[in-house]
Simulated assay, not measured.
Amino acid sequence: MTATLGPPVIAPTFTHLARLSDDTGLFEHARHGVVRRGHGYCTDDVARGLVVTAREPEPSVTVAGLTERYLGFLTHAQGADGAFHNRLGYDRRWRDEPGLGDWWGRALWGLGTAAARSAAPWIREEAMIAFRQGASLRSPAPRAMAFAGLGAAEVLRGDPGDPAAGGLLADAARAVLGASTTYPLMDLDWFWPEDRLTYANAALAEVVIAAGRHGGDPELLTVGLRMLGWLREIQTREGRLSVVPAQGWRRHGPRPGHDQQPIEVAALADACVAAADATGDPGWEAEIRRCVDWFLGDNDAGVPMWDPGTGGGYDGLTPDGPNLNQGAESTLAFVATLQHARRWS
């Protein structure tokens, strides 16, 4: 399948990701391209880092080294019961207790991806041990469950009968949609299970798509695809991608255009890959290309959302153009989205 041509696609670059990393993990923040060590590390970003490095089919020595460090960080962050710390200071001291917030879900996403896709057998084995330990838990937060469910979906790619992953994925979809089978908030004007769009929204649709596909439930798959289609429609402005900003959009409320976050674009790209794989519909391939093009300059400001000099992704799209800081979340969003461009390269 092919997608509509846009700006020339570049290959994923791990230069800035390596700059943001040390022998412990991945620093969260940067001022422009310079690491801000005083802000320390967080499991959220290290887990995202493991997702993108483990996705590389033929990792360079640099990328393989990052995968090892990120896996080591996550196994160190995991408590005896399977929950995870989130924040580690530059002094290598944890600032919190293990918990089941978004970072737990993202840690399982990273571990599940490494267990399914890493080029190194020992990485796959170690990641699977940590994944199983965390997959026995459940979070009360729907987004944390969605991220964990995406890790479970990765495990099921390699082992469709894995009971721990299958149970977690099914529970994640239920957490997103709620107990009702009528989905009362999901009407033609607002086909979404929450009354507000916040962050990484497309991940919720993606986990429902994955649960429907892996669980052999065509109705659930249809619901997930409809959620994603609705999200695609409301994030389109004059034919280009214009994503939910940091302050979110509320049902029946105003829909501000800024500040748009790269994580929204990356989450949409990931979900559209899942939809394309589940349906074979070339329309989803075109949407992936729109996500790539957003970073390359086809956005509301008409400016690239990355720095060719550093390889870093800019932290947000403001009314005045890019926020030139290049932290871990935005750089990982840029790299993750470019990885999907291999589908038509």
Rank of each mutant, 00 (worst) to 15 (best):
V46M: 07
A116V: 10
D300Q: 14
G82W: 02
V223C: 05
L317F: 02
A18K: 03
G161F: 01
A175Q: 06
T236Y: 07
A54F: 03
R31T: 15
L111T: 12
G33Y: 00
M128F: 09
R143K: 11
T13P: 08
G151S: 04
G33M: 07
G112C: 07
S180I: 02
G239I: 11
G166M: 04
A274D: 12
T310E: 07
M227G: 09
L50V: 08
L324H: 13
S60N: 09
T181Y: 04
G312W: 00
A18G: 05
A164T: 14
Y41T: 08
D91H: 02
P254D: 13
A267M: 11
L71Y: 08
Y183V: 06
A278P: 11
G134A: 02
T53K: 03
G309T: 04
F14E: 07
L197I: 12
T113H: 09
N86S: 13
E206K: 13
L188H: 10
R232C: 15
A286N: 15
C42P: 00
A266R: 02
G321I: 01
A164L: 15
R174A: 13
A47L: 05
A333M: 09
W344T: 15
R92P: 03
F295R: 01
V9P: 00
D320G: 14
A301M: 06
R19L: 04
E206T: 02
H214D: 12
L317E: 11
G248Y: 02
C291E: 11
D277E: 14
W109E: 15
F84K: 10
D44N: 12
L20W: 01
A275P: 14
G25I: 07
P142F: 02
R157P: 00
S330P: 01
R124Y: 05
A267H: 04
D171F: 00
G313P: 11
T198V: 13
A146D: 09
D102I: 01
V155R: 12
P121A: 09
W94N: 11
T24I: 06
E206V: 00
W230G: 10
G110M: 05
A267T: 04
H258T: 12
P8K: 05
I123W: 01
W192L: 04
A274S: 15
L228I: 02
G166I: 02
G89P: 02
S242P: 05
F84S: 15
V155M: 11
T113F: 00
W249F: 10
T337H: 07
D22W: 00
D23T: 12
E194T: 14
W104Q: 13
I209P: 15
P160E: 07
P308D: 06
H85Q: 06
I123Y: 00
H258P: 01
D281P: 08
N323F: 01
V46E: 05
F147S: 08
L188C: 04
G25V: 06
M128S: 10
A119C: 11
A278G: 13
Y90R: 13
L225N: 10
N86F: 07
L137C: 10
V63R: 01
R132P: 01
T15G: 07
P12F: 00
F84N: 15
V265L: 06
W306A: 10
R132K: 08
D187A: 07
A205E: 06
T13D: 14
G167H: 08
T4E: 14
G224A: 11
D217G: 11
T337M: 03
F295S: 06
Q339A: 00
G167W: 00
R87C: 10
G280T: 10
G224D: 15
S139C: 06
F191Y: 15
G312D: 04
D45M: 04
